[in-house]
Every structure is written in structure tokens, then in C-alpha cells.
Design a protein around this nucleic acid. Structure first.
Lengths: 245, 245
DNA sequence: CGTGTGATTGATTAAAATCAAGTGATGTGG
DNA sequence: CCACATCACTTGATTTTAATCAATCACACG
């Protein structure tokens, strides 16, 4: 199910601007004043609604744009020479995706929607030029990349020496925090990715993911109904995520 | 053995400039012309020789500077709330270290020398200001961070679904490539980190690291003499690093 | 109403961690 | 310069965890 409909052919949203986007506090536009935001606004190709499974950018392709996620969710993954995928991140509204192509000029991973999703597309060259005159924008780009590095270092720690239960607990709590900061419920949410994708991301088999969910469900920490998750007991999860028991 | 001698009290090297530094093709200075290099030169606090175990920057401290590694080697690691360390990277001459503190303004990891090491210290604020007028420098900073993200995504892939043998083979080949691009021998080198540190980085116990080294030694792929490594059969290692058996 | 995909659950296996000696290297003080 | 202490590394035996293999269940969809 690999849609490759060109962006132009996808239903565009009503034209909207950064200055009245409800995500501007999370996005590139954070800390810019109205005039600066208008300048940013001018280089943005805005709000296309994309179906589930749509590939925004393919690994190996030329790096030209970065994407700001408006609604929906996205996964990024690398495909190794043997063909197996490794998911490198899940993304939600307000996230900026695709900056890691700068180094080589080639997209190092594939960007794919997990559900119906809308994004803003920013041409990187123009963004870079604009950043020369807007120190706050420049700083914001660096911050985004810096945060990405920190996230990945956190994942390294998780994969290097945490148990399956600790990985899942950490995963759920990170999702919870991300939803919270976006104004969604931090205790009740829907997983837009499959067990297989969660396992791939966390270095676990899909069976293990399912077993851990069942275990946590039985012990009353969470409520699992297929993709719907409700966190019942936050403290035990936090304990599991932080401490080596 | 946690030296915390202030930088000022460490023997300074003979004053040297970016324009005649033999690492400028690897470092920030790459692609800058002579005038631009001189401007960069002016904001650099240069060439201090640091003993083994010296802490350049501590996790949780204020983020102010980044470091360019001239000679020696460095590890970066995060310390979790329970106190266990997770090594996030090993660095060699030409590498730029510490940019991931930008996001929060706080150093997200500790930077520590693995042996006698010399570095150049760059005040980040000044570097950022300079980057506004030097597009090539700005691009270089982004490239450095982009490369760091790609490295870490590569590590994620390694930790998520590769066997101990594949991890070690990949580790050795990456070192080999990095030494090669720095003009050192790609087939014979000295590991400046312990088995414990390698294991920590690769998500393996130190015993497993030792066993894999022994196994590869016996099978004639590498020669191991304590910290000295010689790659005898490159092809089998590459095969092991790339393919699922 | 079958078909297929994703999720759950159980049984078995495999890989690496842990536990436990023991060896070799390095460094220190007498 | 040597005896001793310490630390890093190696190797072996056992245990543990999660992967794999396998069957079944549940839900969505044509």
C-alpha cells in the first residue's frame, strides 16, 4: 500500500498562515514576531492532506525539503542493504521532520504517514537563506536538530540496556508527554502504529510487545483495547521507566 | 580518576591557526576561504593538552562551548537517574563535539578524554553570530549535526536487531573508516577505550565483547593483542557487518 | 460469509547476561 | 628492582530473557 500521489494532486486545506496556526508555539515559528512569521510564511508550501501510507520522501532521494507536521502522524525509517526496515522515529503535530538530509544532500530515511496526515513543506535552501537574517529562526533550526540528537541518544540508552518492560513503559510515557504538550489527553490515546512497528522501533519482536501490553493490562497499570491505550497507574510506569527496579 | 584541572592551567600548545591546521579539511574550517578561516580563528580558544580522564564538560552544566578534537580521543556519555552510564559516542581528531546542548541550553552528556588529548574550544554564541555572515560556516554546523543524527540512527539500527558479532564487526569497520579518513592506518590501530566501554556503547556485556574478539581472532579475521587490533580479513567482516549472516 | 491482516497466547529455542574463577598487565611503594 | 595490589581482560558454567515457531483469535473488508 505505497501511495505515491504527487503532493499537488492531494486536496489542499484552506489557506492558513503561521501566525494563526495553533501549532506555531511548537513549530519553527516559535519565538518569531509577526513580521518574521510572515517572512517564514512566504516560503511554506502549506497544508496538504495525505492518506495513510503516503511516502513524503524516499531514502536515497535528493534532499530538498523539510516537513512540519500539522495533523496525523508519521514514521521515519531506514532500509538496510538486506532490505529490512528500522524505524528511527514517530512524529506528531508540531514536529519538524527531515533535517538530517543536510549532511550528504541525500535523504537518509523514508518519511511515511501512519494515518491521514497534513503537512507544511519548506524548501530547505530558502529556509537556510532566511535563517541568515533571522537569528531566532536560525537558533530554532539548531534547536530542532539538537533535540533530535538528544532523543536518539535517549533511544540508544533504552536499546542498549533496558528490559522489554522498561522499553515499553518508557515508550508509553514519552508518547504521553508528547500528547500532553500538544494539548491532547496524556492518559488516553490511540496508537497510530502497529505492534510490529512498535517492536521494530524498540528492538523487540511484535509478540513481546503484545505480551508486555497484556502483562501491564493484567497488573492494572494500563488499559489496552487494541490500539486504544489508557494509562491507569502512572507512578508504577514511571518507576519502571526510570529505575532498574 | 576524575581530573578537573581548569583549562587555563593545562600546558598550552604552540599557537596554531585553522589555516595551517592539518585537520581543517575535516573540521569546521572545511570549505572556508582564507579570510573566512581567519574570522573563525579569532573566536577559537586553542590547543590545550588534557590528561586521560579529563572532563571537558559535565552533564547538567550550562551549555556554552563546543569542542573540536585535535589529537587523542574522547567519549561522551549520559548518566541516568539510577547512576548508570550510557556511552553515546567515541570521537577522534577533526570531530566537533557538544552541539547537542543547544536545545535546552544544558549539556545533555558528559565529555571525557580517553587518553591525552588536545582540543580547540569554541564559544557557541560567537560561532552562531559568525555563522550569520558566513553561509558556508552555517551550513557546516548544520552538516555536523545532521551527520551526528545519521550516526545515531545507524546505531539504533545496530542495537535494535543485530547480533553481538554483527555489532562488533560494524564497530571495528566504522573505526577503520574513521581512521582511514584521518590518514591513519585503516587496518591496524589501537583501541583507546576499554572492553567495558565498547560493551556499554554496543549494548553488550564486556564478557561478550571479549568473547567475540577471541572468536574473530581464532577464525583469522582479526588479530587482537589487548588494545591493539589488526584487521586481517576485511571482506568477511564487511559481510558480517552488512548482511544478516 | 469467507478472507486476510493484525494481535494474542503458548511452547520451545537460542543468544547473550550473569556468575565465577583465573590470568595477564600496569602501577606503586618498600 | 621486586613484591604486591589493582584493574582489565579472558574463559567457562549456568541462567535468563526475549526470539522464534506455531496456533488461535478478532476484527475489518470485499
Amino acid at each position: 500500500m505505497n501511495y505515491n500521489i504527487p503532493l499537488q494532486n492531494i486536496t489542499p486545506l484552506i489557506h492558513q498562515h503561521c501566525c494563526n496556526c495553533n501549532l506555531n508555539s511548537l513549530c519553527m515559528a516559535v519565538s518569531l514576531d509577526t513580521l518574521e512569521m510572515t517572512q517564514l510564511d512566504n516560503i511554506i508550501n502549506r497544508g496538504k492532506a495525505l492518506p495513510k501510507g503516503y511516502v513524503l520522501s524516499e531514502q536515497g532521494g535528493k534532499f530538498e525539503s523539510v516537513y512540519a507536521l500539522k495533523t496525523g502522524s508519521i514514521k521515519t525509517f531506514t532500509t538496510s542493504s538486506e532490505g529490512d526496515e528500522q524505524i528511527t522515529g514517530f512524529y506528531f503535530p508540531g514536529d519538524l521532520i527531515g533535517l538530517n538530509g543536510i549532511d550528504t544532500g541525500v535523504c537518509p530515511n523514508t518519511i511515511k504517514t501512519l494515518e491521514t496526515t497534513t503537512v507544511c513543506k519548506l524548501a530547505f535552501e530558502q529556509l537556510d537563506e532566511l535563517s541568515a537574517t533571522l537569528p531566532k529562526l536560525r537558533r530554532q533550526i539548531l534547536k530542532t536538530m539538537s533535540k533530535e540528537i538528544c532523543n536518539e541518544q535517549h533511544m540508544l540508552q533504552l536499546l542498549a540496556n533496558k528490559s522489554a518492560d522498561e522499553r515499553i513503559a518508557t515508550f508509553l510515557l514519552r508518547l504521553s508527554n508528547r500528547f500532553k504538550s500538544r494539548g491532547f489527553s496524556p492518559l488516553k490515546f490511540r496508537l497510530s502504529m502497529s505492534r510490529n512497528e512498535i517492536g521494530n522501533y524498540l528492538g523487540l519482536s511484535l509478540e513481546t510487545v503484545s505480551r508486555v501490553f497484556s502483562r501491564m493490562h493484567k497488573s492494572g497499570h494500563i488499559l489496552v483495547d487494541n490500539k486504544e491505550i489508557e494509562i491507569i497507574a502512572l507512578k508504577p510506569l514511571q518507576l519502571l521507566a526510570n529505575t532498574e527496579q
